[in-house]
């Protein structure tokens, strides 16, 4: 029980102190999980991240599930996951309630107009970063463009696009491998 509480607390802290998600969490995970509690090694964290990138869901959550599972099996995985999402639930619910009340205010609306411009700039950067790491050759460019067009102009569901792209990747590698 003590260990479960410790798991919950460690991930609660990670969830409440890391901004930005994804790779921004790496230093924090390192410090808490590898240095402080010595639950996992640094290499394991990097492995979890790599798998987190290619499994469904939020990477931080995936990492929490892995570490929790390693320590205390299925229950540990669930407890660690709940720990990492609890701060978001609390903080976002509080902010959302306040925002609901002040959203009609002209100053707040001007602020959010400016903020949405900043979000656009940040998103451009994120997409370029993801593109650099995810698109390796002409095949990647074609798949990215095809997915973009299918979603943008033909309104194809993201689920279908994700599934088709997976199949294309498998076929491409299989064909290339035979040569």
């Amino acid at each position: 029980m003590k260990e479960l509480l410790q798991l919950f607390w460690a991930f609660f802290k990670i969830g409440s102190l890391t901004f930005g998600g994804g790779y921004a969490m790496l230093p924090m995970l390192e410090r808490e999980l590898a240095d402080r509690y010595k639950w996992v090694t640094l290499e394991e964290i990097v492995d979890y991240f790599a798998i987190g990138q290619c499994t469904p869901g939020v990477i931080a959550v995936n990492t929490a599930t892995f570490v929790g599972h390693k320590k205390r099996g299925v229950i540990g995985g669930i407890v660690a996951t709940l720990g990492v999402i609890a701060p978001s639930l609390i903080i976002i619910t509080a902010i959302a309630s306040v925002l609901e009340l002040v959203m009609g205010n002209a100053v707040v609306q001007h602020a959010f107009s400016g903020i949405s411009v900043a979000v656009c700039a940040l998103m451009v950067q994120s997409v370029i970063k993801m593109g650099k790491s995810g698109i390796k050759n002409i095949f990647g460019i074609v798949v990215a463009l095809a997915s973009f067009c299918a979603s943008m102009f033909l309104k194809v569901s993201p689920i279908i696009i994700v599934l088709c792209a997976g199949v294309c990747g498998a076929v491409y590698k299989a064909v290339k491998g035979e040569k």
Binding site: A144, A146, F148, V162, G166, G169, A170, Y172, K173
Partner: peptide
């Protein structure tokens, strides 16, 4: 190889 195809698609979708 599945993820080799998936990653670019995700970039397209987020775009």
């Amino acid at each position: 190889s599945v993820f080799f195809g998936l990653r670019p698609a995700v970039v397209g979708l987020i775009s």
